[in-house]
Structures are given as structure tokens and as C-alpha cells.
Nucleic acid binder design. Structure first.
Length: 398
DNA sequence: AAAACGGGGCT
DNA sequence: AGCCCAGTTTT
């Protein structure tokens, strides 16, 4: 049989595809290895599309070890699509707290409602319909199609691009969205048509166990005899990935304001954008500080002058003071700085503590609430706010 | 095509 | 400090 060629539509990359015999051989080796070595994971207990779906959403950009406890808790609270569709958003957010990418859980519920309304409560069984569900893109469509319904649809994620780029020495930049097409084309050729779900999962297990990003353990790899990069000794040159831009710094003054009942002021973030609908201690962005007197929140370094108390307050704009009813007398000098890195932003929060006097115990501003620390567990706080609170406890309650 | 969108672990 | 991870949606 002649060697088939697969031409990939890039400038320099031409991939020599394997013969049918080699492909069959490869699948056989690979799936035997998977049968033997596959990890036992909660979402591998059966082929329930709902269980697979939830796990795949949680696993987006998130490690297996991180996901497991969240997954078990989630399945206990929402065992079916109907339970998920009927849940309160605040409850869902709290269950997701700490996992990140919170739009995932909002979209998960939107899709659950879609399934209840448009698909009689059952996950649709063909890729085209699956792909119409909120939060389900090309990767997850492939994962659900192959694992739950044994359809030969590739599920191309970071693992697959890494493994395939080494198998065939593909030099396409995996950071570019367009590259996914190349890897899908290759996966379409090598995926096992009889066990596509196992094949896709074998790629993932391989990517996390031996074909790792920096130091792959090729001598332990079950398919090293098929690997071009291994043969050529070029494993560490793949995958090719362009650098990401670094996170942009953003500065805030964070306010821990306590009333005489011991409650703290917290604020609900807007329904759109970063950390949507989550609760934070009030954050004053740079724009709400008056610049020009030489002081800027966040650019304050650790060598703060003792007179910072009045200086900071003089620098709060009228708008900020009115919004949070802050008067100079309440705020002490900053007690700490929190640094929190997101994928695209770096927050610097200079934290202040202030106490309110009884005559100032007025209603909380719009979207704000007075909440006692013993009740914090009922609100969803993102990472930076957890850090602020921890820093406060360390400083004042030790 | 690029940016927005979290958080934690590893080197 | 930088890179990585079982990505999708919006711009």
C-alpha cells in the first residue's frame, strides 16, 4: 500500500501520513496502553452525557486534581440536568467559588435550560446540536460526542496539540486559533473509529503523564516508536507556542469598613465582566482618586509616611466619599497590599481599615450590604478579596 | 485574529 | 517570574 500524504495548509509544514497498517498498529498500541493505565476518575464511572459534560466544563483550563472535589460536590447537589436548570445563580456561583472562569457555570446553567426546553431534557446526540449549547465549543463538542456517544469526533485541546505536534513534528504556532484546524485534520485521520472516546481520553492521559510540556518521559511512552520528534530527538522543540502578553497592572484602594455591630461593608460586582456578580470589599480604582497632590494609591510602596492617613483621604474624590460614606476620621493608614494575578490583569490593592461611629450607621450604598464575618460563607468572594480578608485577620486578630 | 475571562501548580 | 493547564465567548 502506498503511503498516503496529508498536506496541511501552512507555508512550511507537510505531514507524511502513515499507511493504513501503521494507523491500525498505532491505535492498537495506544488503546491497549490506555486500557491498562487509564486513571480512575469520577466522571469515567459511566457514559452518562450529563456527568461527562459537567466534568468537561470544569476541566477547561483547570487541572484534574483541582476539579475532583468540586465535581463530587457538584454532582451531589445537582445530579441531573433538571436540578442544574432549576438552581439559584448565587448557589451555583458559591459552588464554583475558587474554580475561576465563572462564566463557565453561568453558561452551564444556560445550556441546561436549553436542554430542558429544546431537547426534552436530554443531551442531544449529534455534534451539530451539541455545539449549539452555551459554553460548548469545538473541544467540548468532540469530548461529549466521542465519550458519551462513541462518535469519531476529535477533541483538540492543549494536550492533543502537544502530543500531535511531537508525533508529526508540526511547527504551527499552537497559540494561534487557526492552528486548531490542522490538529483536527490530523486527529480525524488517526482517531479510532470504534473507540473514539477512549482514543481522545488516551491522548489526554498521555499528555498529562508522559508527553508533558517541559520534560517528556519518552522512554516510558507507549507510542514512542511512532513519534517523529522522539526519533529525531526534537521533543523539546515542540509544540511551538508564541508568548502571551503580560498582565496589565491595575491599582486599587481596598476598604475594610466595619460598623459598631461588627459588620463589614461588601459590594456586589456588576452582572457583566470580570468576576461578575461576585462580592468584594469596596475597591476604589485609581480614577476615583484625585491625582495631582503627589499621591497615588497602588504606587504607594512599603515606605509609607506616618501621615498617610490624612494624605490618602485628601486624595479620595468627592464621589468616592459619598458613595461609601467615608470620612477622614474613619480610615487608618493602610495595613497591607494584596497582589493578585489574573491571566490578563495584575491587581494591586492597598488595603485600609476603618470603623464607623454609631451616628454614621446609615443604610448601605446601592449594591452594598453590611455582613458579619460569621456570615461571609454565604457570599462568593473571589481570590483578591480572600487575600484581603486573610491579611486583615493576620494583622488585627492575632 | 486578538482580547477577555481565574486560579493554582510547577520549574 | 514565567509557563502551563481537559477552552469559549466577545470584540
Amino acid at each position: 500500500m502506498t503511503e498516503e500524504k496529508l498536506r496541511v495548509d501552512t507555508q512550511k509544514t507537510e505531514i507524511t501520513m502513515w499507511s493504513e497498517k501503521k494507523i491500525t498498529d498505532f491505535r492498537s498500541h495506544f488503546l491497549s496502553w490506555y486500557d491498562l493505565e487509564k486513571r480512575t476518575l469520577p466522571w469515567r464511572e459511566n457514559n452518562d452525557p450529563y456527568r461527562i459534560w459537567v466534568s468537561e466544563i470544569m476541566l477547561q483550563q483547570t487541572r484534574v486534581d483541582t476539579v475532583i472535589p468540586y465535581y463530587l460536590n457538584f454532582m451531589k447537589l445537582f445530579p441531573t440536568t433538571a436540578d442544574l436548570a432549576a438552581a439559584e445563580e448565587d448557589t451555583l456561583l458559591k459552588v464554583w467559588e475558587g474554580l475561576g472562569y465563572y462564566s463557565r457555570v453561568r453558561n452551564l446553567q444556560k445550556a441546561a435550560i436549553q436542554i430542558m426546553n429544546e431537547f426534552s431534557g436530554e443531551m442531544p446526540t449529534n455534534p451539530e446540536d451539541i455545539a449549539t449549547l452555551k459554553g460548548i465549543g469545538p473541544y467540548t463538542t468532540g469530548a461529549i460526542s466521542s465519550m458519551a456517544f462513541q462518535l469519531p469526533v476529535p477533541a483538540v485541546d492543549g494536550n492533543v496539540m502537544r502530543v500531535v505536534s511531537r508525533l508529526f513534528e508540526i511547527s504551527e504556532d499552537i497559540a494561534k486559533p487557526a492552528s486548531r484546524k490542522t490538529f483536527e485534520a490530523i486527529m480525524n485521520q488517526i482517531i479510532d473509529p470504534y473507540k473514539p472516546g477512549d482514543f481522545n481520553q488516551a491522548m489526554m492521559d498521555l499528555g498529562s503523564s508522559t508527553c508533558t510540556p517541559t520534560t517528556p518521559t519518552c522512554n516510558l511512552c507507549p507510542i514512542n516508536e511512532f513519534c517523529q520528534a522522539f526519533e529525531a530527538g526534537t521533543m523539546t522543540q515542540y509544540p511551538v507556542k508564541s508568548k502571551k502578553k503580560k498582565a496589565k497592572p491595575v491599582y486599587y484602594a481596598g476598604l475594610l469598613i466595619q460598623n459598631e455591630r461588627g459588620e463589614f461593608l461588601i459590594e456586589k460586582r456588576p452582572a457583566e465582566g470580570l468576576l461578575a456578580n461576585m462580592w468584594t470589599f469596596p475597591l476604589l480604582p485609581e480614577e476615583l482618586l484625585t491625582v495631582g497632590t503627589g499621591l497615588k494609591i497602588g504606587k504607594l510602596n512599603d515606605k509609607l509616611p506616618e501621615t498617610i492617613e490624612t494624605q490618602v483621604l485628601n486624595n479620595l474624590s468627592v464621589e468616592s466619599r459619598q458613595r461609601y460614606q467615608i470620612e477622614p476620621i474613619w480610615l487608618k493608614k493602610p495595613f497591607g497590599e494584596v497582589v493578585h494575578l489574573f491571566s490578563h490583569l495584575k491587581w494591586f490593592i492597598t488595603s485600609y481599615y476603618g470603623k464607623m461611629s454609631s451616628e454614621m450607621l446609615t443604610e448601605a450604598p446601592e449594591n452594598c450590604l453590611w455582613v458579619h464575618p460569621s456570615d461571609f460563607e454565604n457570599y462568593t468572594f473571589p481570590g483578591p478579596q480572600q487575600k484581603m480578608w486573610k491579611s486583615y485577620l493576620t494583622k488585627f486578630e492575632k
